[in-house]
Computed example of a mutant assay.
Amino acid sequence: MDRLRLGLVGYGYWGPNLARNFHQLPEAWLVACADADNARLAEAARLYALQQTANDARALIENPTLDALVIATPARSHFELVSQALNAGKHVLVEKPLALTSADARALTDLAQKNKRVLMVGHTFEYNPAVWKIQELLDAGALGELYYIYANRVNLGRVQTDINALWSIAPHDVSIMLALLKQMPLSVSAHGATYLHQGIEDVVFALLNFPNNIVGHIHASWLDPSKTRQMTFVGSEKMIVYDDVDPEAKLKIYDKGVYKRGDAFGEFQLRVRSGDLYIPKIDLTEPLKYECAHFLECIRDNKTPRTDGENGLRVVRVLEAAQESLKQNGTPIQLNSMDADKRG
Rank of each mutant, 00 (worst) to 15 (best):
M1T: 06
M1Y: 04
M1C: 01
D2W: 05
D2M: 05
V9I: 15
Y11F: 06
W14V: 14
P16L: 02
N17F: 12
R20H: 06
F22S: 00
H23W: 04
Q24K: 12
L30S: 03
C33F: 00
A34S: 04
A34Y: 01
D35A: 00
L41F: 02
A44H: 01
A45N: 14
A49V: 01
Q51I: 00
Q52G: 00
N55R: 05
R58W: 08
A59W: 00
A59H: 03
I61W: 03
E62P: 00
T65Y: 02
T65E: 03
L69S: 05
V70K: 01
V70E: 02
T73Q: 02
T73N: 05
F79Q: 10
V82M: 03
S83Y: 09
Q84D: 10
L93A: 12
V94E: 04
E95K: 06
L100V: 07
T101R: 08
S102N: 12
D104K: 06
A107N: 11
L108R: 10
T109V: 13
T109S: 15
D110E: 14
D110F: 05
Q113E: 13
K114W: 07
K116I: 09
M120W: 09
V121T: 08
H123W: 07
E136D: 08
D139R: 13
A142T: 11
G144Y: 09
L146I: 13
I149M: 13
N152W: 10
N152G: 07
N155L: 13
N155M: 09
L156K: 12
R158Y: 11
T161L: 12
D162G: 06
L166W: 12
L166E: 14
S168M: 15
A170D: 10
P171S: 12
P171N: 09
D173R: 12
S175L: 11
L180I: 11
K182L: 07
A190Q: 15
A193Q: 12
T194N: 10
D202H: 03
V203C: 12
A206M: 15
F210T: 05
V215N: 06
S221F: 11
S226K: 15
K227W: 08
Q230V: 13
Q230W: 04
G235P: 06
S236C: 12
Y242T: 04
D244R: 11
E248R: 11
A249V: 02
K250G: 00
K250Y: 02
L251G: 02
K252T: 03
Y254F: 14
V258C: 15
K260Q: 14
R261E: 13
D263H: 09
G266N: 02
E267D: 05
E267V: 00
E267C: 04
F268V: 06
Q269E: 11
L270P: 04
V272C: 08
G275I: 02
G275P: 01
D276A: 15
I279M: 05
P280A: 09
D283E: 06
L288C: 04
Y290T: 05
C298F: 05
R300K: 13
K303A: 06
T304N: 08
R306E: 03
R306H: 13
R306P: 03
T307C: 15
G309M: 10
N311E: 09
G312W: 11
V315A: 12
E324M: 13
N329M: 07
N329W: 07
P332V: 05
I333L: 06
I333S: 06
Q334C: 05
L335Y: 08
M338H: 12
G344L: 14
